[in-house]
Computed example of a mutant assay.
Amino acid sequence: MNELVLPNDTNVFGNLMGGRLMYWMDIAAAMAAGKHCNSPSMTASVDNLSFKNPIKLGNIVHIEAKVTRAFTTSMEIHLKVWGEDSLHQYKYESNEAYFTFVALDPNGKPRSVVPVIPETEDEKAHFEGALRRRQLRLILGGKMKPTDANELKAFFATSNP
């Protein structure tokens, strides 16, 4: 997804407002989720939204959204954002985040989604890490006890000689 940063999108410093970028990222994630599950879906969570570099007035925003893993009814979407200065002809990294979407049936209830089959090394790395990120989200959201997060325990486990 691409957007042009116009004056109404900026703050007093001439930078794209974070809330506007989040809005655009939510739309891009919704399109990726909807395409994957072939049904309407809604945002369940947003985490680790990192602002690396501001995007200036007149620059182009490039948003790439990919479904990294599907669970029973939810999907994790990884978003990467770049800014592009067309005048000086260079692109720069701006943001990165993970969104979680839930697929909905015609009655607005969660419905099952098809699995993701990772192919590239990058896709496989995101797929493998998705379960740990999901468990962390569930713990922070009060939906899972830390003692039940087996993937996280295994990640932090150390062997004692």
Rank of each mutant, 00 (worst) to 15 (best):
D47N: 11
M22D: 02
P7C: 14
A149P: 04
Y98E: 07
P161N: 12
R134I: 01
I55E: 03
E84Y: 04
E123Y: 08
W82M: 09
T68D: 10
D148T: 08
E119L: 08
D105S: 13
I27P: 01
V114K: 09
D9P: 08
N38T: 04
K80V: 10
F101C: 09
D9F: 06
D85V: 14
H36D: 14
A28E: 05
A28G: 10
T43R: 02
N150W: 11
L104P: 00
E76I: 00
V113K: 02
L49R: 00
V12R: 15
T147G: 01
E128I: 07
E84F: 05
D47K: 10
W24M: 13
S41P: 02
P146F: 15
I27H: 12
L152A: 03
G141F: 15
V102M: 01
P7M: 04
A44N: 02
Y23P: 07
T100M: 13
V114S: 15
M1Q: 03
I63N: 01
L152M: 15
L87Q: 03
M25K: 04
F99E: 02
K35E: 09
A28Y: 04
A157P: 07
E3L: 05
K91H: 13
D148W: 10
A97G: 08
V46K: 07
P7I: 12
S112L: 04
L79D: 05
I27Y: 05
K56P: 04
P115G: 06
I77S: 00
E64G: 01
K52C: 03
N8T: 00
G19I: 08
D26H: 13
Y23I: 02
A130N: 11
Y90K: 07
V61G: 02
A32S: 12
D9A: 00
V116S: 12
V81R: 00
Q89T: 06
D148E: 15
E121S: 09
I77T: 11
Y98S: 06
L16K: 05
P146H: 15
M144C: 07
E84G: 06
H78W: 09
E3P: 02
K91L: 09
Y92C: 12
K80R: 09
H62L: 11
D26Y: 12
G129P: 00
L138W: 07
N8E: 08
L49A: 04
A29Q: 11
K66D: 08
L6M: 12
A149G: 08
S45I: 15
P118Q: 03
L87C: 10
N48V: 09
D122A: 14
E76Y: 04
Y98K: 08
V12M: 11
G129Y: 02
Y90D: 06
L6Y: 05
K91W: 10
N107C: 01
N95Q: 07
I77P: 02
P7K: 07
A154V: 05
D122R: 10
H62Y: 09
D9E: 02
T158K: 14
I139K: 01
N107Y: 06
K124N: 13
I63G: 00
K35C: 11
T72L: 09
F71D: 08
L104I: 00
Q89M: 07
N107E: 14
A29F: 13
M42N: 06
A65D: 03
P118A: 00
F156P: 03
P40S: 06
I63E: 01
V67R: 10
A28Q: 04
